[in-house]
Amino acid sequence: MNLVRVLMVDDHLMLAEALSARLSEVPELWVVGHCATSDPRLAEVAQRSRPDVIALDVEPAGTATGSLVRQLRETLPTAAIVVLTGTGDARQAVEAARAGAAAWVRKESSVEQLTEVLRGVSRGHSWYPPELLGPVLRELREDAARAGQRGGPLDVLSDRERDVLCGMVAGKRGAQIAEELLISTETVRTHTRSILAKLRVHSQLEAVSVACAAGLRVDADAEPDIRL
């Protein structure tokens, strides 16, 4: 019998420990560790634990949900990510799906349901609750349609450069972008220089103008504070 190695990532460590104890009673599952979502050593813990599945609470990440999921995917490309959270925010679900999360499970779900999802994603399956599946599929279809339209000015950017550009469009300072993306301010500066070069512009203001003209969307709740 192949064991499914599971890493629990949740800021509510007592809850994570209690759930880990219950999951440890399932013969096919092996909880290899737990870590806080906000722990700066998250990537290191994930690499050391070598999980097959990461059960991740994205609620503390807020608008940085996609960046958090993407970071874990980049750290452990072979690990499936199951969002296990108390929030039902459709925007977070869409961003998680875009970044590669295989499933979304509410914390109030039964252990039996969670166990079924954990087993499933380890075999390549996906699962989103019905109330979130519609928005997720709609946005992913629109993403696919936009991707099929060649020649967009932002097509030259990498996913991480797009993340940085989104922060710029939202009017965020470099330090805030770095904090939300879980990268250093120097890395943000490096991505910014690359963005300017690829878009053939000379300032962040010009880059923001190009992004807005290309239809780049940001969180509607973001508070603009452009200081370039």
Rank of each mutant, 00 (worst) to 15 (best):
M1T: 04
M1R: 01
N2Y: 07
L3T: 04
R5E: 01
V6E: 04
D11A: 00
H12A: 07
L13T: 06
L13S: 05
L15V: 08
L15M: 04
E17P: 01
A18N: 06
S20N: 00
A21G: 05
R22A: 05
L23T: 06
S24P: 02
V26K: 03
P27D: 09
L29S: 02
H34Q: 07
H34A: 07
T37L: 06
S38G: 08
S38L: 09
D39W: 01
P40Y: 07
P40W: 08
E44G: 00
V45S: 04
S49G: 04
S49I: 10
I54K: 02
A55E: 02
D57T: 09
P60K: 03
P60S: 00
P60Y: 06
T65F: 08
R73D: 12
T75N: 03
T78V: 14
T78S: 10
V82R: 06
V83P: 11
T87V: 15
T87I: 15
Q92H: 12
A93Q: 05
V94R: 06
E95D: 14
A96L: 14
A97V: 14
A99E: 05
A103N: 10
V105A: 09
E108F: 12
E108M: 08
T115W: 00
T115F: 00
T115G: 13
E116N: 03
S122E: 02
R123A: 11
H125C: 11
Y128V: 08
P129H: 02
E131K: 09
V136M: 09
L137V: 15
L140C: 08
L140A: 10
D143T: 09
D143L: 15
G148K: 00
R150G: 04
P153W: 13
L154Q: 08
L154C: 12
D155K: 04
D155L: 00
S158A: 07
S158R: 04
R162H: 08
D163P: 03
V164P: 01
A170D: 11
G174N: 10
Q176L: 15
E179I: 01
E179G: 06
L182I: 12
I183G: 02
T185V: 14
T190E: 08
H191G: 03
S194L: 07
I195L: 05
R200G: 08
R200P: 00
V201Y: 04
H202F: 11
L205N: 05
V208Q: 02
V210L: 14
A211L: 11
A213L: 14
L216C: 05
R217H: 14
D219C: 12
A220Q: 12
E223L: 10
D225V: 12
